[in-house]
């Protein structure tokens, strides 16, 4: 009985494709980091804003499980489906959006020898998969049949065009230095110097584009509460609303795992300690990567307490007129670096 259970764990749960999607950096890790991130966001904002932040649930640990209470409430709340919405896409959009926002992890390795699927183009596949969730956002906006939703969806579609290019250009800015589009190789090449030192310009452009992509301040434009209520999710309630709120945090975390692999050295400094191979080659590198992604995410939620919200034309103008050029400069810088390396 026990043997078969261990076998089950070993063969099914620890089988890379399942492990990646379900444990790390997949569902479980993402949910836990969501818990931490949202709690930290509220606490950081609270400290800066002369108040305590959440404390009512579990005051001894600083209200850390507030989100569990929130989720429970969302789950028990009635899901109101307005008569005027297009029901099927209305229901599908947030659920599919949440699942799709998890998909990129299927292409992201978090250890040197243990990956979901051996791919030579894993960076490109991961980036391609990150571009999908906004489409579901626009679907939700359209299905809601609400003017505020519609405006939110329109804003989102304007933003996609602006940030996707920056994300991809700045990722290429890093890829040309490593000369590969495989995460595992890219990380192993950052053994001595991290990507952020080799190409800081691309790193900054990538960082800002991620802010824009995931609706962090000051780019919280597509669901600007004071202007268009809740953007595409105006008509949602209950669990569907909870899921739709989770999408942007999930995306942020996934983007930041990519960021830490591309620019922050991934699981470097890599070291092995004795014991089981699983601990040395999976658990420790995974922890390092996830910690790095969490720290970057924390700096991103910190901006909520500092900035206001930009106008859509200002954000688009800034993206096309400034950050696009920065990404191009980063690409040139990366190519120049590679060229010089080869010459010397």
């Amino acid at each position: 009985m026990l043997d078969s259970f261990i076998l089950f764990i070993k063969n099914i749960i620890l089988w890379p494709p399942v492990f990646y999607l379900l444990i790390a950096p997949g569902l479980v890790t993402i949910l836990i980091s969501l818990l931490l991130l949202i709690w930290a966001e509220r606490k950081i904002a609270g400290r800066i804003q002369m108040r305590y932040g959440p404390l009512e649930i579990s005051p001894k640990i600083g209200g850390a499980i507030q989100l569990v209470a929130d989720l429970t409430r969302y789950m028990l709340q009635e899901i109101i489906i307005p008569r005027t919405v297009d029901t099927l896409p209305y229901l599908i959009a947030p659920i599919a959006g949440f699942i799709i926002s998890l998909l990129p992890v299927a292409a992201i390795p978090i250890s040197p020898i243990y990956f979901p699927s051996p791919m030579t183009n894993s960076i490109i596949v991961a980036l391609a998969l990150t571009t999908l969730p906004p489409i579901l956002n626009i679907l939700a906006a359209w299905a809601s049949n609400n003017k505020f939703s519609l405006i939110g969806g329109a804003r989102e579609s304007f933003l996609i065009a602006a940030y996707e290019l920056i994300v991809i250009l700045s990722a290429i800015g890093a890829m040309v230095i490593y000369g590969t589009s495989d995460f595992t190789e890219a990380v192993s090449l950052q053994k001595n110097l991290w990507g952020i030192i080799l190409n800081p310009i691309s790193a900054i452009a990538f960082y800002v584009a991620v802010l824009m992509a995931t609706g962090r301040f000051p780019f919280e434009i597509a669901e600007a509460e004071a202007e268009i209520v809740m953007g595409a999710y105006t008509e949602y309630s209950g669990l569907l609303y909870g899921l739709s709120m989770g999408i942007s945090y999930t995306r942020m975390f996934v983007y930041n795992v990519i960021f830490s692999l591309l620019f922050l050295g991934g699981w470097q400094p890599f070291f092995t300690i004795g014991g089981h191979i699983f601990i040395s080659y999976v658990l420790i590198p995974a922890t390092v990567v996830i910690l790095k992604a969490l720290i970057v995410s924390l700096t991103m939620v910190f901006t909520r307490a500092i900035y206001g919200r930009l106008r859509i034309d200002q954000a688009l103008g800034g993206a096309w007129k400034f950050w696009f050029l920065v990404a191009i400069v980063g690409l040139i810088w990366g190519s120049a670096l590679t060229y010089l390396q080869q010459v010397i």
Partner: peptide, 12 residues
Amino acid sequence: GAKFLVRPLRIT
């Protein structure tokens, strides 16, 4: 913001 994060000035 960082200064307030380290040394908060709570009014509540």
